[in-house]
């Protein structure tokens, strides 16, 4: 009888499926499953659940994107479809997250362009997709409707629902069969509240990914880390309103002073270190999807997460 980890949890994280193949009514080459764990990530001799999903983030309006992430992919960033194609071929993430940053410009109104962008990106890559829409109640309804419709059947992950503006995202997700990213500002209680609100307007639990918001390393990451751990342990103790897979994104990592002030190659090294040193602890704290913007972080975070998850590291593809 050997000493090993003590696992007296009673709960299990729900499963979430992202992407739909042709047989499932979409056009993706594969689907992604996350969730299913009965312990913290990687704990146990044969851990339940799935390997971490590594997402790579792109934007439709690259002017509103960190320079270091843009420069790392060269010309590809000028066009979202080209960027997505490049990502699938060269960077090889599990998931592509498209940010419709164009909607963040004041006075944005061109919803037709959003629709076109989504369609082109879906054409350009066969990877499962997550799309971040607008962030303004005044345009949310139309933007999410357009995104949802353009991606109908693809079972995308649609972001972002917040406590103050969740109805538009939820309506689009329900109408077109997508799942939702539910984001709350670094607080377990607010995360739970939002999940309850979504449940009560009819979003099933297996259609929600929790985004507890991840501060950059040195800029609040400690709060995010503990909130993720708290959400995960609450779920494992049986709180079903928190038992959804979590997504953690290094959104703030590449705009910090340390990255901005670095030049050339140094900027890349700092950017990669900052993303890696935030996303790996995020995985340890319970994130199922880790999302980065620098292409070089993608293989590093994937290797690290799979070494933590697998009993035999490097045991082949």
């Amino acid at each position: 009888m050997g000493i090993s980890t003590i696992s007296d949890w009673t709960g299990q994280i729900g499963e979430l499926v992202i992407g739909a193949t042709r047989s499932e009514g979409g056009t993706r080459s594969r689907t992604l499953k996350v969730g299913g764990e009965k312990d913290l990530n990687g704990i146990g001799n044969a851990p339940l659940g799935y390997p971490a999903v590594v997402a790579y983030e792109i934007a439709d309006d690259p002017d509103l994107w960190p320079a270091v992430a843009r420069h790392a992919v060269g010309d590809a960033s000028s066009d979202p479809a080209a960027w997505a194609r490049f990502a699938e071929a060269e960077i090889r993430p599990d998931l592509i997250r498209l940010y419709c940053t164009s909607t963040r410009r004041r006075g944005f109104s061109d919803c037709a362009a959003i629709r076109k962008t989504v369609e082109e990106v879906l054409q350009a890559t066969s990877l499962p997709i997550s799309i971040e829409g607008s962030n303004d109640p005044a345009i949310d309804s139309e933007v999410y409707q357009k995104i949802g419709e353009a991606a109908a059947g693809e079972r995308i992950l649609l972001g972002t629902a917040e406590a103050g503006r969740y109805r538009s995202v939820a309506a689009a997700a329900m109408a077109y069969g997508h799942s939702i990213i539910a984001q709350s500002p670094i607080d377990i209680n607010l995360a739970k509240q939002l999940n309850i609100l979504l449940r009560e307007i009819g979003i099933p639990r297996d259609r929600i990914a929790i985004d507890p918001y991840t501060g950059a390393l040195g800029y609040g990451f400690e709060y995010s880390y503990s909130v993720m751990e708290r959400i995960r342990t609450a779920a494992l103790k049986g709180d079903e309103d928190l038992a959804m897979p979590m997504i953690s994104s290094a959104v703030d990592s590449l705009t910090i002073k340390e990255v901005r002030e670095a030049e050339g190659e140094d900027a890349d090294r700092i950017a990669v270190a900052w993303e890696l040193y935030a996303m790996l602890p995020a995985y340890l704290a319970g994130a199922a999807i880790v999302s980065v913007r620098h292409p070089e972080t993608v293989p590093l975070i994937r290797d690290a997460c799979s070494s933590l998850f697998q009993v035999h590291p490097g045991g082949g593809e």
């Binding site: 607080d187 209680n189 607010l190 739970k192 509240q193 309850i196 309103d241």
Partner: peptide, 15 residues
């Protein structure tokens, strides 16, 4: 403060 945030919900975050 944690309890307060939990209570800023009708009736409470822990249903």
């Amino acid at each position: 403060m944690d309890e307060y945030t939990r209570s800023c919900f009708l009736p409470h975050t822990d249903l």
